[in-house]
Design a protein around this nucleic acid. Sequence first.
DNA 1: TACACTATGTTATATTATCACATCTAGTGT
DNA 2: ACACTAGATGTGATAATATAACATAGTGTA
Lengths: 184, 184
Amino acid sequence: MKSAMQPASPDNFSPATQALLDRAEGLCTRQGARLTQQRREILGLILDAPTPVGAYDLLEQIKSPERKPAPPTVYRALDFLLEHGLIHRIEKLSAFVACTHLLHNDHAHDCAHDHHHDDMCLHTAQFLICRSCKNVTEISTPAILDAVRATCRAEGFVIQSASVEIEGLCAACAQKRPAPAHAH
Amino acid sequence: MKSAMQPASPDNFSPATQALLDRAEGLCTRQGARLTQQRREILGLILDAPTPVGAYDLLEQIKSPERKPAPPTVYRALDFLLEHGLIHRIEKLSAFVACTHLLHNDHAHDCAHDHHHDDMCLHTAQFLICRSCKNVTEISTPAILDAVRATCRAEGFVIQSASVEIEGLCAACAQKRPAPAHAH
DNA sequence: TACACTATGTTATATTATCACATCTAGTGT
DNA sequence: ACACTAGATGTGATAATATAACATAGTGTA
Ligand SMILES: [Zn+2]
Ligand SMILES: [Zn+2]
Ligand SMILES: [Zn+2]
Ligand SMILES: [Zn+2]
């Protein structure tokens, strides 16, 4: 137990982020897993980032005068968070985002099923990736997932995970630039 | 000019593969692009591979006593082939497959539309990735694409590319290994 | 030929991710 | 308290994937 003292690392997250982290911790304990300080910090950084974060970005951010962690530290935390459905990896960006599902909604239970977040829900997600502002939005369209499931059923393919990554311009950016000129 | 002589590199592709390469060449010239010997060889290797191929695998394969190409050689060829819709990159595998669409079908025109392979068709694909036998199948399910388009329209998101990667067990492998006991 | 353009070669480096092994820590049972 | 165990972290090296920057060679055209 860590009384009222702050841990060694800063961990200066906003109350809102802290609330999300607490919620994530609850989900972990319910799964018999531990959201350690290290993992908590990584998840907090991902939550606070406006856009997906790369592993080495995180590595830089958790460095301090006292601690100089190496890549495995970050990757191990990321693996944990991925396995427990707290974050997703955006393949096209080699970067990570928090699962909006788990943290903002009521436990991701628009699954309609009862089974709580089994592998089917865990490893399946869909994203809109804006090439202009770099924002990534996790969407949960039943129609897409249903179409995927139907196709696989028809082929006899057993789904273990599925990801949909859609790149383009978000509504805001599409209005600003009608034609995609390459600006910087 | 090197007349009828075989090029320096072996290029020992089967007649079937050669036919596909010729077809790809036709597609390129129609687009005002050149399927050079180098690009042709890379595409041939990808076509002949039973499963997706990594860039460095290709690099090894095109090495010969005379030629020791470097990574950019391969990556430039891959970029060309990607831009012309002859291959796809499987993000989850960091590997490349030939577009079955373009080479096996009749010019990918089950798009139903008339526009011949514009960016919408070009940069959009769906794959079934078997974790057991490593086979990758490109599927073209209108239902999935339609669901994606509908979602984006609703959000005001302008699609530039979309990819769907589904991992699991193909029908053949799923039979061998009984389904992973769906505990409920 | 001279020119512009595309393609390729070459060297170095950037970026992302994992291995292997040592050490530490938290919980468990005695 | 003690030892034990499993999980978590530290550390150094390295693997795997991808690009930058600049030089050279080929290709088509005026
Ligand atoms: Zn999610
Ligand atoms: Zn945007
Ligand atoms: Zn295709
Ligand atoms: Zn299989």
